[in-house]
Design a protein around this nucleic acid. Structure first.
Length: 530
DNA sequence: CGTGTTTGACCCGCGC
DNA sequence: GCGCGGGTCAAACACG
């Protein structure tokens, strides 16, 4: 009796995790008139911690017995519990029976019940912890986005002024500032080769000349350094995240998959060991956006298009794209969390793959071997031995996708809802906060008929994809948008554009088949280095 | 004319 | 120090 009353206390926790509001309050109110809501949660973790660490100390007198049990979870505690709680139990038993055997049996029963409760509690606790971690990740991502947006708002003002004074400095400044203040300096510095070089130069010059839109307020270098020291942690994370890459392999006749962003080709190079040239694209949705992608066909199977995304968008994107980007950030964070390129990465990678694409976990592989941790999505499932030859640390998993040399539309399309659905569903776990918020907005903007759930948006995408004659490209685009950071359309239009833009790829053969309204942006970006 | 692509040159990191 | 390869720049070119 007393035990049963004590156990329910602990089980109230599920409350906070899922929408902190809906279901639980009632239960809680029933149990304790709201007295224990938060306290329970806190106590729960506290108990758990103590259990893990010392396994001894307990605060609440009421919970003592329970905690002791918990500590012992094993066998011995039961006996100790008996001895310790003997008095308490005696109180209960007094009225019932005097027989010691009966007492024992009763105690054992109670203990069993308690153990069951404890197990429940433990499992719940674990679940809660997971949720807490997820929430933490979500919070970080959200914070990042907010920071970006806020900075951009300020940036727009500053950039306008700067634009008046000096054209050449505008873009670099914007780049630096928009690039997530934290990541700006270090991140760009770490960026490969000439661009980072140029931008650093410009940034320094801009800091001197302009005095800085944000971090440049202080004189000279001290302020940035201070900011660096203050945000060092974020810097590292962001810088590393920027290095993280998301690679998508898909069969497509199109020269490039459409992922909802606008790209400008800035270079093409013959890569060693591959007769097919590698094309370099830069995001042009905003001046100074550090996001780049490389597109290259597989040497052995030229129908396979390998698209690699790198970096995080530093500009506001359409809500849907934002959600995707947040997912990318989360994914990158997940990928990069823990120890970076070490064995731990394997764990994270595997987890990432399974988390993001559980049912299609087969499609996701993570490489920790390359300089940059890479998430690879393979949509080809070809018999091609060249598929993942070079990266020993990857986790190639058999793909549920039908092996589709020419991509059988019907069968593959049939799988789409499941794949995407689960992918998104799990993405929501990844960055559930942003997903729910952003996607809601996005859905409303994109199509009022869609339910305010990302799944709805997803299904819409799936439908659009299903209708796409060039299914492979569309599929790749959608997947890449899921992982690569943008929604497979510009977000300004209906999701139907998924089909349109994708099909456009077949013809245009080049990058920005998207909006024409970005021309000025692109032109401005050209002056970036000047 | 504006915009986007092409492509040779350049820079940098890395290995030898 | 040198060569190689990857990545980027930017003038030249193409296109609507």
């Amino acid at each position: 009796m007393d035990h049963s009353s004590s156990s329910p206390l602990i089980i109230q926790f599920p409350v906070n995790l899922n929408c902190a509001s809906a279901t639980t309050p009632n239960e809680q109110s029933e149990n304790h008139n709201g007295k224990t809501k938060i306290i329970n949660e806190m106590d729960f973790f506290a108990d758990k911690k103590e259990l893990e660490v010392g396994g001894s100390a307990i605060h609440d007198s009421t919970n003592n017995s329970i905690v002791d049990f918990n500590v012992n979870t094993g066998l011995h505690l039961l006996t100790t519990a008996n001895t310790n709680t003997g008095s308490d139990q005696s109180i209960v038993d007094d009225g019932v029976s005097t027989n010691s055997n009966e007492k024992r049996s009763k105690n054992e029963k109670q203990l069993a019940v308690l153990q069951a409760e404890l197990e429940r509690m433990n499992s719940e606790n674990g679940h809660l912890r997971e949720m807490l971690n997820q929430m933490g990740n979500n919070f970080n991502s959200l914070q990042m986005h907010m920071q970006t947006l806020m900075q951009q708002t300020d940036q727009n003002r500053a950039s306008e002024e700067e634009h008046k004074t000096s054209d050449g400095l505008m873009e670099p400044r914007q780049f630096m500032d928009l690039g997530l203040s934290s990541s700006a300096k270090t991140g760009e510095a770490s960026l490969s080769s000439s661009e980072g070089r140029n931008e650093l130069d410009h940034s320094s010059a801009a800091d001197k000349d302009v005095g800085g839109g944000e971090d440049g307020q202080g004189p000279e270098n001290q302020v940035p350094k201070l900011a660096q020291s203050l945000k060092s942690v974020d810097q590292d994370t962001e810088a590393t995240m920027r290095k993280a890459r998301v690679s998508v392999r898909a069969r497509s006749e199109a020269p490039m998959i459409t992922d909802g962003c606008q790209w400008r080709k800035y270079g093409q190079k013959m890569a060693k060991g591959n007769p097919c040239p590698r094309a370099y694209y830069r995001c042009t949705m905003a001046a100074g956006c550090p996001v780049r992608k490389q597109v290259q066909r597989c040497a052995e199977d030229k129908t396979i298009l390998n698209t690699t995304y790198e970096g995080n968008h530093n500009h506001p994107l359409p809500p849907a794209a934002m959600a995707m980007v947040s997912t990318t950030s989360s994914a990158a964070k997940m990928l990069l969390s823990g120890s970076m390129p070490s064995v731990d990465n394997l764990m994270n990678s595997n987890f990432l793959a399974q988390t993001m694409l559980p049912c299609s976990s087969s499609m996701a592989t993570i490489s920790a071997s390359t300089p940059f941790p890479t998430v690879t999505l393979d949509l080809t499932q070809s018999s091609n031995p060249f598929q993942f030859p070079r990266q020993p640390n990857q986790f190639p998993i058999p793909i549920p996708f039908p092996d589709a040399p020419t991509v059988g539309n019907s069968s593959a399309v049939a799988l789409l809802p499941q794949i995407f659905g689960q992918a998104l569903c799990n993405q929501s776990k990844f960055s559930g906060i942003q997903m729910s918020h952003d996607m809601d907005q996005g859905v409303h903007q994109l199509s009022p008929t869609l339910p305010p759930m990302h799944r709805g948006q997803l299904s819409d995408t799936v439908n659009a994809l299903a209708n796409d004659p060039n299914f492979t490209a569309a599929l790749a685009a959608a997947i890449s948008s899921l992982i690569g950071g943008s929604y497979p359309n510009n977000g300004d239009n209906n999701t139907n554009d998924v089909v349109d833009t994708t099909s456009n790829n077949d013809e245009s053969g080049t990058t920005s088949n998207n909006n024409s309204n970005d021309n000025h942006k692109r032109s401005s970006s050209r002056f970036q280095v000047n």
